[in-house]
Design a binder for these strands. Structure first.
Lengths: 108, 108
DNA sequence: TAAAAAGTTGATATATATGGAAACTTTTCG
DNA sequence: CGAAAAGTTTCCATATATATCAACTTTTTA
């Protein structure tokens, strides 16, 4: 997690992406039904917002860029551990909400 | 998914668990940071609320009760596919929300 | 309190998620 | 356009998640 030379993202770089709103004001939030397909897209879009290449994200986690590519295009299923690892590296919080539909549950 | 003899959960059974509130009024919702430990507990608590045994839940999915036990006590990591399968059987909706912390992202 | 039901654990087999390496394609930019 | 950077894909190895079965422990209930 700790690196020697830190290059903090400049405000100008930020302005390019988030016009007007600054700092704590603007907080991007993605919410969606848990699906494999969407998850990959989300990783990609968060990574983009962090202005990272697949290679950079990979090195934060300790994997090759090809691995990131695979996760983003999810050709495969994913484990929770991987999800946590990726979003932690992206300094992004992940919440899971579980909502029971109705009381009409029935058993055989 | 389709079974011959359906035994719908009676309202009385429900009242035991959800005092006062009836039907669509009361909807249980669990929300938590995505963590392995909590997830297992959640499966268990939703299953209990559905008044199912591990064996019954297992048969809905097509696995043995021992497998459900392991998921609930999660001795292991879990894949998204498994999460989806379990909660679908429990007629429970699963949402994932992803929130970016700040703009203070830094790269080496 | 004994039997039945529910849940746990360990051994084991199999499927598949993770990951690297390298070649390849696509995008970016001088 | 042509080179560099970024992203993708294929082949492959390895770790591990899924799952069963059977024996065991714990809980429930008649």
């Amino acid at each position: 997690m700790e690196k020697k030379k830190l290059k903090t993202m400049t405000l100008d770089q930020m302005k390019d992406k988030h016009i007007g709103k600054v700092g704590t004001e603007k907080r991007d939030k993605y919410e969606f039904d848990l699906q494999l397909e969407i998850l990959g897209e989300t990783i990609k879009s968060v990574r983009k917002e962090r202005n990272l290449t697949q290679e950079q994200l990979g090195s934060l986690i300790g994997v090759q860029k090809s691995q990131i590519s695979k996760l983003e295009r999810n050709t495969k299923n994913v484990t929770i551990e991987t999800i946590l690892k990726v979003f932690k590296a992206l300094k992004t919080n992940v919440k899971l909400s579980v909502q029971m539909n109705e009381f009409d549950f029935e058993i055989a």
